[in-house]
Design a binder for these strands. Structure first.
Length: 486
RNA sequence: CGGGGCGUGGCGCAGUCCGGUAGCGCACCUGCUUUGGGAGCAGGUGGUCCCCGGUUCGAAUCCGGGCGCCCCGACCA
């Protein structure tokens, strides 16, 4: 076997493994513009499945989709002070159009708060016009200095929700509710179990009062911020005159939230489930859940093909996304490697021997310890059980990821030395007390390269609350999770 | 934005030091034999050697200047 056909292993070089998997599984390819990529059909199919699932969840919670323009007047971006400071370095700006310089430059949206709240201001007069609960699926652009396929590209796809409410309490509840939606979505569909929590002031969104996030742990024990939900207070409302007349007759500023997840989740999926043979795609988001490979070449070829058509049709009728790989210019073995690299959960092989026995060969992308990879099972049984096998596979992926996260977590750490040691020994999330002082974050980052990923929500806190700050100076006001991060 | 590496058929590379017909593997095309874990044999197609300029009888190779991409660090979904 030619060496070049094999992937770099995760243990050899995780970053290189990631790049190879993404390209060789045909998720994406580098585009001619620096830091940008083409999302290929296999990658886009996964994204579409994510989109479909999350879109339904957002609609179930009362949101509607809309679309706002790509170009935003620079003056809008500049209105919210923290917001400009945060985004100015990574803005791409259009200064010329129609062959002439523009009077006012337009920013290509890095996010849409400004344009959206400017429009909300037009639409809202009284409390009866609230809440506004909109979402948009869009591309955005951030001129990143260092890029990586899916995880950080100059242009990426995402959804951004933007809501306006009459009260602070309602807006805060919205931000928390959405975080719950995100958490459920990534767990149930991507089989990625995140921590949830609140960002420190250092790490929060530019312009937010408070940012909530879901933080997932990758196989190299680096954290990935997988989704964020922000309570914006009245910061944007005040700058964009987003006012309404309250029930009591007073003029008040509205309260906003914004929240998003992006194609970064595709990268998260790769680094959560992939192995040295390539991708492992959770069944619920797999564009193909079962691939059928016919064993061709004998006198029975026509009969084998007919049987494959039949099994494919029956699986499809059972609600399984099935692909029949009937190419005759590629050998069966080559197809196995290809579909494994692409992470298809199950493979069904049908050959002349199966015709005689009424069986099929069933192969799972990940084989449980101690089981044979290839099982010959009666055709009817295979068809009948594949839907439940897919469900079980999905659940096992989530469980394995959760176990890995917990196994990599270190709790009860009392000092920065101990924190550094844990990280150097391969820890993922390290939990400590924190005084709330940003200087501690700076010191930890300086000494360990780790950042404060989240002030963790109650569910993720240690049984005994830490009493001291990890710095040794002062009492702890909250338990936090640190990690080196993407 | 600093440091490193690399630009040669679609992909991976050799050739560059020491200038002289542009090569290898994979892929691709045709034919035959194959097909239950990356098929074999035979024949073939395909390259302004990143760009611009210079030196030279002659440049992938030497000199000067650009550009691009990747990786590693500071900022970020």
């Amino acid at each position: 076997m030619a060496e070049e056909k094999k992937l770099t292993t995760r243990a050899e070089d995780f970053a290189e493994w990631y790049n190879e998997v993404v390209q060789r599984a045909e998720l994406a390819d580098y585009a001619p513009v620096r830091g940008s990529m083409v999302i290929r059909p296999w990658g886009y199919g996964i994204w579409e499945n994510m989109q479909r699932a999350l879109d339904a969840m957002l609609k179930d919670t009362g949101h509607e989709n809309a679309y706002f323009p790509l170009l935003i007047p620079m003056s809008f971006i500049e209105k919210e002070k923290k917001h400009v400071e945060g985004f100015a370095p990574e803005l791409a700006v259009v200064t010329q159009a129609g062959g002439k310089p523009l009077e006012e430059p337009y920013a290509i949206r890095p996010t849409s708060e400004t344009i959206i709240y400017a429009m909300y201001a037009k639409w809202v007069q009284s409390y009866r016009d609230l809440p506004i609960l909109l979402n948009q699926w869009a591309n955005v652009m951030r001129w990143e200095l260092r890029t990586k396929l899916f995880l950080r590209t100059t242009e990426f796809l995402w959804q951004e929700g933007h809501t306006a409410h009459a009260t602070a309490a309602e807006a805060e509840a919205e931000a928390v509710m959405i975080l719950g939606v995100y958490r459920k979505f990534v767990e149930e569909w991507i089989a990625m179990p995140p921590l949830t929590g609140v960002k420190s002031d250092n790490e929060k969104f530019a312009g937010a009062v408070r940012s909530h996030s879901i933080e997932a742990l990758m196989q190299d024990n680096k954290a990935l911020q997988a989704g964020t939900s922000h309570f914006l207070g009245q910061n944007f409302a005040k700058q964009f005159e987003l006012k309404f007349q309250s029930e009591g007759g007073q003029e008040e500023y509205a309260w906003n939230t914004s929240w998003g997840v992006s194609t970064r989740l595709v990268g998260g999926m790769v680094m959560t489930h992939g192995d040295d043979a390539g991708l492992v795609v959770p069944p619920k988001i797999a564009p193909v859940q079962v691939v059928i490979v016919p064993i061709l070449g004998g006198d029975d070829e026509a009969a084998v093909r007919a049987k494959c058509d039949e099994v494919a049709a029956r699986l499809k009728a059972a609600g399984v996304r099935v692909k029949l790989d009937a190419r005759d210019n590629v050998t069966a073995g080559a197809k196995y490697y290809e579909w494994e690299r692409k992470g298809v959960p199950f493979r069904v092989e049908i050959g002349p021997k199966d015709l005689a026995k009424g069986s099929v060969a069933l192969v799972r992308r990940l084989t449980p310890e101690g089981e044979k990879r290839k099982a010959f099972v009666p055709e009817a049984e295979a068809i009948a059980t594949l839907p439940t096998r897919l469900d079980a596979f999905q659940k096992e992926l989530l469980e394995a990821a959760r176990k890995r996260r917990e196994a990599s977590s270190v709790r009860g750490v009392q000092s920065i030395d101990e924190l550094a040691k844990a990280l150097d020994e391969g820890a993922g999330f390290v939990f400590t007390g924190w005084s709330g002082d940003p200087a501690v974050e700076a010191e930890v980052k300086e000494r360990t390269k780790a950042t404060l990923r989240a002030i963790v929500d109650e569910e993720f806190r240690s049984p005994a609350a830490p009493s001291k700050c990890v710095s040794g100076k002062g009492a702890s006001i909250a338990e936090v999770a640190w990690a080196r991060a993407y």
